[in-house]
Amino acid sequence: MTGSDALVVRPLISSDRPAWDDLWAAYLAFYNTSLPQNVFDTYFDRLLSDDPIDFNGLVAEQNGTLVGLAHFLFHRHGWKVENVCYLQDLYADPSVRGRGIGRALIEAVYGAADTAGAPSVYWLTQEFNAEARKLYDRIGTLTPFIKYDRR
């Protein structure tokens, strides 16, 4: 990507709200989920918070249009002195997939983790997310952990 096509990864700002709503709704739909408006409102507020233990939001922008998002947070870990970084949400608009947007967002999260002194970045995905897992296999390490939820 060159010139006006250049991809910019930057922090989420309040004026991104309409485009963020669309991207996050599409991300949720990919996982067959929908959430009420008050969750959208609360999450967006948390993403813009200055609280260091709250969520952080990044967006990928191309030609003035938001084309991707990443949400992450830092938290304590019982086996490490430093905080670790959890990449909660990652999404690239289907029309721009395969152009490095997911990689750029993950690398930006890696950079934020490095700046914060967090030695570990981890994320989850569903087994059926084969296309994204091709990227994840190149830039991450698949772990043997299996996730459980409370009944």
Rank of each mutant, 00 (worst) to 15 (best):
D16S: 09
N56M: 03
T65P: 01
G57M: 00
F72V: 03
A29N: 10
A70P: 04
D45Q: 12
S14C: 02
Y43P: 00
D54Y: 00
K80S: 14
N56L: 04
A70K: 03
E61I: 06
D22I: 09
Y43I: 00
W20D: 05
F30W: 13
A19Q: 15
D41S: 13
F44N: 02
W24M: 06
L48E: 01
F44R: 04
F30C: 03
D22M: 08
D45Y: 01
L48K: 09
R76T: 02
Y43Q: 10
Q62W: 02
V81Q: 11
N32G: 07
Q37S: 07
S15K: 03
W20E: 06
G57S: 00
R46T: 09
N63P: 00
L69T: 08
D22S: 11
A25K: 13
W20G: 07
R17Q: 15
N32P: 00
V67P: 13
T42Q: 15
A25R: 14
A19P: 05
L35W: 01
F30P: 12
D50M: 05
D51K: 10
Y27P: 05
Y31T: 13
T65S: 11
D50F: 04
Y31I: 11
G68R: 08
V59K: 02
F74D: 03
A29V: 09
D21W: 06
F72H: 15
A19D: 14
N63W: 00
N63D: 06
D21R: 15
R76E: 11
D21S: 14
A26W: 04
A25Y: 04
V39D: 06
I53W: 10
A19W: 05
R17L: 15
P18W: 09
A25E: 14
L23C: 07
L73G: 01
L28Q: 14
H77W: 10
V59E: 06
L73Q: 05
D41A: 15
L35A: 13
L47T: 01
T33M: 11
Y27I: 04
A25F: 12
F40K: 09
L35M: 09
R17F: 13
S15P: 02
Q37N: 04
V59L: 06
L69H: 03
I53M: 13
N63Q: 14
L47P: 01
V39C: 04
Y27L: 12
Y31G: 12
F30E: 02
A26V: 01
A70H: 04
S34M: 00
L23G: 03
N32L: 07
H77L: 00
P18Y: 08
V67K: 13
I53V: 09
I53A: 12
G68T: 04
Q37H: 02
G68F: 06
K80E: 07
H77P: 00
A29T: 14
D54V: 00
T33D: 08
L58W: 02
D45L: 08
F72M: 10
N38Q: 10
T42K: 14
D41C: 01
S14Q: 02
T33S: 14
A70L: 03
F40D: 07
A25T: 15
D54C: 00
S14D: 09
S14W: 00
A60Q: 07
L23A: 03
Y27T: 08
N38T: 04
F40A: 03
G57F: 00
D16P: 10
K80L: 12
Q62K: 13
F74G: 07
Y31P: 08
P36H: 01
I53G: 11
L66N: 11
F74Y: 15
L35D: 01
V39F: 12
K80A: 10
F74E: 06
G78Q: 05
L48C: 05
